[in-house]
Amino acid sequence: MADVEIKLDRYDRCYSPGDTVSGVIIVRSDSKLSHQGIKLQVCGTVDLQLSARAVGLFEAFYNSIKPMELISYDITVSEAGRLPKGVTELPFEFDLKPRKNMKLYETYHGVYINTQYIITVEMFRSMLAKNIRKAIEFIVRIKSKPPPQNKVYFEINPEKLKNVQKENRQLIPRFSIRGHFDSGVCNIERPFTGNIVIEQSDQEIKSIELQFVRVETCTYENNEAREATEVENIQLADGNVCHGFDIPIYMIFPRLFTCITTIETAFKVEFEVNVVILFKDTHMLTENFPIRLVRVPTRFNF
């Protein structure tokens, strides 16, 4: 019995462009082992897929989108030879650099867009024995400069509603809601913060929620397919809160399902938050705010 495993030096398997990715290939064997060479393959791709909803419109190009190859290495770790019985560690390393004319994007598992980096090790065996393969994913994170502080203030009242005609406005309960986000450009490694205050509301409030939405866009021959999905929904208030209370907004960005805001010609990944207020009479009030995500590594991520 023989077994191969890849172990990266970093416990969290996170790397940034320009980093050297290093680790060992661990071969375990309960007898002497001869092989025809051990090879490492590094591969990073962006896969684009369109949703079923979009398929009807864009069947033509649905099949023709090819994955974008961002990085590709073939490394020979060992030429053909023999390995002793027991555990053998074979070190390897490579620089995390994109292919020519390419850029590295953050690891991201979206619904329509998938960016993924994989290291595969393969041990070639003689004709009779099967090759042994193992693959692991490593995570790429793109660092940015600290974003400028730009607080976003908001005020919601019936006058500002866009989907209500003037003559119907008196039907809507009176309310005044105020708040702010600490920044419209957000560090993905820090929570999204701000506050909200119900200054006045005739109608009893049932719930206040913060919805985190990502918008994926694929571009092909001047056509755009745009899809928005909810990534997270956090209830900020449950029931009729005290008026005038300063209620904090606090949301941790989910890992992997979120990446920094990425705008390319072929695809875009963007983010928005919605402040959602549900009234007891089943009226629902939403206000939408686009936000930009960047990554500034911090020691504490809260």
Binding site: V215, H283, N288
Partner: peptide
């Protein structure tokens, strides 16, 4: 079921709508 909510993900800038329970 957090993801199966009926809140529209791309509403207008500020809007009030009636939602089903």
């Amino acid at each position: 079921d957090a993801s199966s909510l009926d809140i529209p993900v791309n509403p207008p800038k500020a809007a009030v709508t009636l939602v089903k329970k």
